[in-house]
Design a protein around this nucleic acid. Structure first.
Lengths: 321, 321
DNA sequence: TGGCGGACTGAATTTTTATTCATTACTGGA
DNA sequence: TCCAGTAATGAATAAAAATTCAGTCCGCCA
């Protein structure tokens, strides 16, 4: 009885608040009940399940997969993009677009963006990036050298400068190959003051945008001048390397894999990467499943941007529609 | 595409806010989006129907009937009580209880309560009134005289004093019969300074609690000493009187019905009544349908407390379960 | 017949949210 | 090409809501 009266009042308050859109103060005035009590009644309405708030998931968004990824891999955020078909091209388009949107909404001035210079996903992202509304970002730092092949060098440079341009930032190029021909060659390159200046910036990177590579010749790697010889690749595989970020390799469980190659790579180190506020991994496609999983397990990535098919596989679930 | 990205973000924000219970500022920090924008995204979530808020109506409450009554009759509030069966006794119990709860939640100090002294509903209300939690109300004013029959006089007095006691207020009794035997008798009674003092308070009443009477001998009227003779009742009927509040009569369409009887009644007038901040009508039962409807049409009541059966009939709808 | 703990309350205050404001960029038309 | 109008943003602020606080009233137990 008394309980019913109580419930009636709560229901009425709930109705006024949520349906009629009245403010608590207005309700307070109408019912001659203090605003504090109205607030408390509304809280009880939630507790007693008189108001029920449901989220109507729009088509093309996958909060469940995202939550799954966040929880399973301890990610800060996960973005799962809608994607027509489970093929490289379609996926690149989807995650590039998603990454572009992410970037455009989340950037704040004084952001120092680090970008790994060669990655098909990042390329797509930059291509999808709308002329950025508001002035954004302070600097864009290239955190991985280009390729020995001059044509790809240009490619990497383009990526960095374009992003800088679009974000109104200062580009900071790393004019060096991603992989030097020898330890000595690397040392020599690091002597260059411009190279040093850029590498000094690695620690200032607040937002790192990185691809995640699988250990196997990808199309791009293949066409980009055979960074590694088949023997070197084999060596990596033998060491248990499953994937890489900026040519820094790690095993299936995420532990770093150190090989002599490390000493020839010119890029941000995995440790330096962890110093960034946010590391955004942008990758998808069945070919990369194991590499992505490894990267997630290693905790190298705070935010993952991928497609629904890959997300589904990472969670061992079927992808949504 | 861009739209999907947008929707994904809104969905994510909605999820964080409503499901995870994060504050906008926290979301803002996590997503690197300003709090203002988070607020705007949440508003869009409502607009775009991504959050859906539904009210789960508890058993025994009838928001639809209440809303119907409010809208149909322009009431400030309507309270419809659950009620086992459509019989006098059951209804009295239901609305008395509801009225008691209403009173206990809505009273504020400095309230001057006017109470029409004889009404079965009000009697029930006072009986149901729990020893009032907090000190409440300033004064309780009797706004209708008692009955000629001394036993009922006591009754009326009891009602007023009890209510005053329960609300910690000062009782202001109207020591006079509700109906004087003649115009002259009334005039004489009004000469009494106590009576005058009380009647002067009528204009200060902030909350009036009134029953609504049907024009026909009710059980109580019958036993309370035949206030009116059968002839007088017939006269009222002939004048079109359909109901009364404090023995002030009105027709089916709510217009006041003036008869010579008026000059013998000692109670607040309908005009004075309208001066009160809130007039609460407490009534139910098929016998009173027409009277209640008339009172509502006349706008004499701001707040109606009734039972689900009566409410349903007033709206010409079947009552709920 | 106190006295203690718990439950409630409204006023005051703090916290949270919505909105205003100034700025910027972009649009579409002359 | 230049300009008026629209849209969108973050910082600042106003508005709204939640919570703290102090006080009261219980009921319960000694």
């Amino acid at each position: 009885m008394a309980r019913t009266n109580e419930l009636r009042l709560i229901t009425r308050v709930t109705q006024m608040y949520y349906l009629e859109g009245l403010k608590q103060a207005q309700i307070s005035a109408i019912l001659n009940i203090s605003q504090a009590t109205i607030s408390r009644l509304l809280k009880r309405a939630v507790d007693e399940n008189i108001v029920r708030i449901t989220i109507n998931v729009p088509r093309g968004t996958f909060p469940d997969l995202e939550t799954g990824l966040r929880e399973r891999f301890g990610l800060k955020e996960a973005i799962v993009a809608e994607c027509g078909e489970d093929r490289e091209e379609s996926i690149l388009s989807a995650i590039g677009d998603a990454a572009a949107h992410f970037l455009s909404t989340t950037l704040n001035d004084r952001e120092v963006i680090g970008i790994s210079s060669w990655s098909a996903s990042l390329l797509r992202m930059v291509d999808s990036l709308p002329p950025l509304k508001r002035v954004k970002a302070a600097r864009v730092v290239q955190i991985l050298g280009g390729m020995g092949n001059p044509s790809v060098q240009v490619h990497a440079t383009h990526l960095t400068t374009r992003l800088a341009q679009l974000t109104g930032a200062q580009p900071q190029l790393l004019s060096a190959p991603g992989v030097a021909s020898s330890i000595e060659a690397r040392r020599a390159l690091l002597d260059d003051s411009f190279v040093q200046a850029t590498m000094d910036e690695f620690r200032d990177v607040s937002l790192a945008l990185v691809g995640i590579g699988a250990v196997e010749p990808s199309r791009m790697l293949a066409t980009s001048g055979n960074v590694f010889t088949p023997e070197e690749l084999q060596e990596l595989k033998d060491s248990g390397a499953e994937g890489d970020i900026c040519l820094r390799f790690f095993a299936a469980d995420g532990t770093p894999v150190r090989t002599p190659l490390d000493d020839r790579v010119i890029s941000i180190s995995l440790d330096e990467l962890k110093g960034a506020d946010r590391v955004v991994g942008i990758a998808g496609g069945a070919r990369k499943d194991r590499a992505i999983k490894a990267a997630l397990l290693g905790g190298y990535v705070d935010i993952l941007i991928t497609d629904k098919f890959t997300a589904g596989r990472l969670l061992g679930e079927p992808a949504g529609t």
